[in-house]
Design a binder for these strands. Structure first.
Length: 199
DNA sequence: TATTGGATCGCC
DNA sequence: GCGATCCAATAG
């Protein structure tokens, strides 16, 4: 249960992965230090027809990893400042990924506060750019593995059974994709949690 | 080679 | 509401 999720897990349909990741632990290992956050909010990006996805239309150097096999990290720089973390899903050739949008800080909170230069728990990891800053995630992790022995960033289950309610929403910040794709309810989150990203 | 705009955030 | 600040994507 507290094992790293496997590549088989990430190979499932993207919407199932997006939901199943809620409540699980994202773990960043830096030397002996572990930074851990519980996943609170995710979004699915689904196939080359999804106009909101970086993999829409054509295959390029940046989105190439989304066309690969499941269980690899896709980390990109947004607005020249922040990183965003995704994990690739489904099968090779079908470009899809889940964006990790928010965490609840669990372990290594002091380090997260320093990296973020913020002290409010509700502001440490409550957004895709914030959580990357708090867990020291940047493009050096792009295209690396989320499974197996040699990773410094992975997701694992918890012992406790899930006791939360799940909500769904539109994906955030994808209005340019046009109404059809922007309206898909492909975001999901844990209800009544202080750390969901704001809108 | 040049231009444009983005799956965000924090301050005004 | 708006600017920051880099780089991928696209146009020329």
């Amino acid at each position: 249960m507290k094992q790293k999720l496997t590549r088989q897990f990430y190979s499932q349909p993207t919407l199932e992965v997006a939901h199943a990741l809620l409540g699980k632990y994202l773990v960043r290992q830096i030397g002996q230090q572990k930074l851990i956050g519980q996943i609170i909010e995710t979004e699915a990006y689904l196939g080359h027809q999804d106009k909101a996805s970086h993999a829409f239309g054509k295959r390029t150097a940046r989105n190439e990893i989304m066309f690969g096999s499941a269980g690899f990290w896709y980390v990109y720089l947004i607005y020249g400042i922040f990183s965003c973390l995704n994990v690739v899903t489904q099968k090779k050739g079908f470009p899809s990924a889940v964006l990790i949008r928010a965490l609840e800080p669990i372990e290594g909170i002091g380090v997260m506060k320093r990296l973020r230069r913020k002290s409010d728990l509700g502001d440490l990891t409550s957004g895709p750019g914030k959580l990357c800053q708090a867990l020291k995630i940047d493009r050096t992790l792009n295209r690396t593995k989320a499974f197996g022995r040699d990773c410094s960033l992975w997701i694992q289950g918890r012992k406790e059974p899930n006791d939360f309610k799940i909500g769904t929403s539109k994906r955030i910040g994808v209005g340019c994709a046009g109404p059809y794709w922007a309206r898909r309810q492909w975001g999901c989150f844990i209800r009544d949690n202080q750390c969901v990203s704001k809108r």
